[in-house]
Amino acid sequence: MQPQALTGGFTDPAVQSAHAFRSVMEAMARPGTLREISGAEPPAPMSRAAGAVLLTLCDSDTPIYLAGAVDCPAVRNWLSFHTGAPLVGPAECMFAVGSWSDLGPLSIYPIGTSEYPDRSATLVVECPQLTASGAILTGPGIKETAALSLPELAAFQDNRTLYPLGLDFIFTSGVRVAAVPRTTEVS
C-alpha cells in the first residue's frame, strides 16, 4: 500500500461528515440544487466531492463498484483504508462511482424489490461540469421546476417509469454535488 492512501480522509470525521451529509441530503431532497461538499482529498481521478460522499456514506456494510478510470490502485487503496468498503461488480453494489459513460449500461444495477425498494444502488456520477442549466426537472422536492446539466435524458426517463423501484443519482464535479432521485421527471 502506498502512503498516499493513508492521507486525504476527514481530519475531523464527526463534524466534517455531518456537514457533508447535510449537503448531500439537501441535494437529494431538492433535486437539481447545487451544493458544495468538501473535506476529502481522494487520489486522482476521483473528485473531492465524490470522495466526501463516499467517506460520509460508505463503510464495511456498503459494497462499492468502481467504474472505468476510478478503478485504479490509488483509489482502491484509498477507499479500502478510509472506508473498509468491499469493492464489487455492478450487480452487487450499493454505491457505484464513475463517469457517465463508464457507469453504463444501467440495467445491471440493483433497483430494489417491490417489498424493499430501498435496496437499490446509488450511482455517484462524476461530471466534467455541473451547472443549473439544461434538463428541466420536476417532481417531489421541486417547487415548480429546476434545471441541471444531465448527461442525457432517456436514461432518467426510463428510470422514472420503474418507480417505486429504480436508481438514485448523485452528481459530483470538483467540490459540487447535486442529486436526482428516482422520483424526478426530466425533460
Binding site: M25, A29, L57, D61, D118, P140
Partner: peptide, 21 residues
C-alpha cells in the same frame, strides 16, 4: 458513533428518494 450515523444517513437518503416508504 459514526458507523451508526452512516447507516441512518443512508436510510434517510433512500427515504427521501421514495417518499412515504
Amino acid at each position: 458513533d459514526e458507523q451508526t450515523k452512516r447507516m441512518i444517513r443512508r436510510a434517510i437518503l433512500k427515504g427521501l428518494a421514495i417518499p412515504g416508504y
